Computed example of a mutant assay.
Amino acid sequence: MIILVTILFSIFYLFQINKMTYALCESREIPEEKQPKIYRTVNILITILIVSFFVEILTAVT
């Protein structure tokens, strides 16, 4: 149950971060050519954060 909640939270969190990244790109008027690199960097960093959190939850549960 805890794992399912963690996965759902992670998906929601990733979408919210992408939404905030989009708002950042719009407000700073970042050129279209640089936006994919920004999204990729943010998504990789957030994914690392989520995976480390997931591993911590798994070690705490077991």
Rank of each mutant, 00 (worst) to 15 (best):
F54T: 09
I7D: 03
L49G: 14
S27V: 06
Y13V: 04
M1I: 09
I17E: 10
S27G: 13
V61S: 03
I50N: 04
T6C: 13
S27P: 02
M20E: 13
Q35S: 09
V61W: 07
I44A: 09
V61F: 09
A60Q: 05
I57F: 00
E29I: 09
L45P: 00
A23D: 13
N43M: 03
L49I: 08
F54R: 00
M1R: 12
V51S: 10
R40M: 13
I44N: 09
Q16E: 11
Q16W: 09
N18E: 07
F15E: 06
T41F: 14
R28L: 15
C25H: 01
I48N: 05
I2Y: 07
V5T: 09
Q35D: 02
A23I: 09
P36A: 09
M1G: 15
Q16V: 12
K19E: 10
E29M: 10
I38R: 01
L45D: 05
T21I: 03
F53V: 10
L4W: 07
F15Q: 05
R40E: 11
L58E: 05
L4S: 10
I2L: 07
N43Q: 14
L14A: 08
P31L: 03
Q16I: 11
Y39D: 02
N43K: 03
V5M: 14
V61L: 10
Y13E: 05
M1W: 10
V5C: 06
Y13R: 02
F9G: 14
Y22D: 15
I17M: 14
T62V: 07
T47E: 04
V5Y: 11
F54M: 11
I30K: 04
T62W: 06
I44V: 10
P31F: 04
V61E: 12
S52K: 01
S52W: 10
Y39W: 13
E33V: 05
F54D: 02
L45A: 15
T21H: 02
E56S: 12
V55H: 00
L49H: 07
I17V: 15
